[in-house]
Amino acid sequence: MSTLVFVEHHGSELQKGSLGVLTKAHTLGGDVAAVLVGHGVRALAAEVATYGAKTVYVAEDDTLEPPLPQARVDVLAKVVRDGGYETVLFANSVLAADIAAGLAARLEAGLNWDLADVVMQDGALVGKRAALQDSVYVDVGWRSTPRIALFRAGSFDAVPGGGGEPKVVDVAVELEEHSRGAKVVGQELEESTGPSIEDADVIVAGGRGLGAPENFTLAEDLARALGGAVGATRAVVDAGWYPYAAQIGQTGKTVSPKLYVALGISGAIQHKVGMQSSNVIVAINKDANAPIFEFSDFGVVGDVHAIVPKLTELVKQRKGE
């Protein structure tokens, strides 16, 4: 079996998720290669090799610097075709998902996503995933090669110690016209300031159910009373209600506090992956069918505006404040 793993980087930092997938590929065995695409990536090849890649393909070019998917589809399509790779693995990210789907269409290849694991079963590769808001576990397969797989964030730990001196192969690709169409014209990178919510014992997180940006004071007051920090969903961060640094989920922070209180949060998978390992989860949502109740320890079907001010008062009283 031959496997190619897309290793994602941000600046000079390799992304843990993709190194975890590379570690997994190494344990599956066979011929394992990795591919790095961007500017200044050749310097990262040796580090990638330590996670188990015998060959590291390097597509190094200024034009590949912006983190956009389509140029990367061009690179991966060439590597997969020339190298005859049977399996192509990705760790989920905003960038990787779009590359994986573009590549699947380019190569007419089967793509399974949101996988938690892959195993060899009777000589065939089988993907393991949860589906439909994690309400059912599904085994999935591929009917042809190449097989493309996208793993849910945090599926595997990145463990170095796999490989020796890698074979580094330069890849030069003429980009397709449509792959050059989108341009990054600005970036607002997140600067971490102040205490990180990742260290908080208690997190009170607010979602769109709070109704308006000013209602985040409900979450802030309760967080203060409980001695915790405030978190948010992407929906409210994207809408400009709360800062990005407070976002919890797939593209935000991963947290595991002792107590997580979700106010007006539906409980989308992309939010869940960032907070599911919290010790105790309490949710208030007015929709009895909201998915958040499926993974809460204590759920209240009700209106945050009616319940949260009272709750804050009661917590303060109890603490004798």
Binding site: I284, S296, G299, V300, V301, I307, V308, K310, L314, R318
Partner: peptide, 15 residues
């Protein structure tokens, strides 16, 4: 896991 409907006393139940 427990799930309750708010009947006016949910805040106390959470505490």
């Amino acid at each position: 896991s427990q799930k309750i409907e708010d009947d006016g006393n949910a805040a106390q139940a959470i505490v």
